[in-house]
Amino acid sequence: MKCIGVVRMAGLAILLCCLATNARAQPRIAALSWEMVEHLLKLGITPVAVADAPDYRSWVVHPALPPGVPNAGTRTEPNLELLAQLRPELILITPLLEDIRDKLERIAPVVSYDDFTQDQDNLLMQRENFLALAQRVGRTPQAHQQLAAMDDSIARMRERLIQHFGAQLPDTTVIRFASPTVVYINGPNSMPQHAMQLLGLQPAYDAPVSRWGNIQTSVTVLGNIDDGAVLYIEPFAQGERLFATQLWQAMPFVRSRRFAGMRSTWTHGGVFCVEYLAAAITDALLTLPPRH
């Protein structure tokens, strides 16, 4: 009887111990912007709450957010009362929420990481954000390991591209359709373009610099892309409507069969979204015939 009691006590102690180490291993962090969710997950930390969690699951997808993580409201207006009830130890924000910092600080310490801007290299900025976060939670070795793995993986993708196309890779532009007449073109400092740079691809369209890295413009502008490939980010519900038109069929890149869809990938994420983008771009480009 006593013996069982002791065993029970020991079991309980072990359990508590596990919980304690687990708690130390898993700091309670709330992420109010999606880049930070990505970074946390890559560091092996499951956030206690994520702003716009359902949208993250359907739009960002990778890295996958475990199903139990609660939604903390929207990214522009996270639910403060819910956050307070969840008792996080740390809250991660971007400058978008800087104006409610003092409210958030009543709940838990707040760290703000830079957001996309026009003036700085957005990829470099996200890389630094990731390393700073890793340092904060004491997982710097793991962070470097992840970054090295990403660099390796992108280098392998580049080799596959060179194998397929030869040394002269096709100039590429990544777009997203808003409607059959309006298109977003990803330009300098956008994550797709950074992914292209890492793969050694040149842009096929000379888009102006902008804050979020993409411009919204008329579909006909794409006709200026004489030489090069165009990849569109899926899904595009009205694709049939546009792709059947005479004008579309006359686009130089359609005629030379240098047009393909790439699987849905988030374009404004953290540092690792570049890897997912690079993978999607590579897979899409490999469906094009090797010419030259």
Partner: peptide, 21 residues
């Protein structure tokens, strides 16, 4: 807001065409 982006353009009245349809 994510699903309705295209509607914003349409809501603002765009005469752009890609064919005679």
């Amino acid at each position: 807001n994510q699903q309705t982006r295209g509607l914003f353009v349409w809501g603002a009245g765009d005469l752009g065409q890609i064919d005679w349809q």
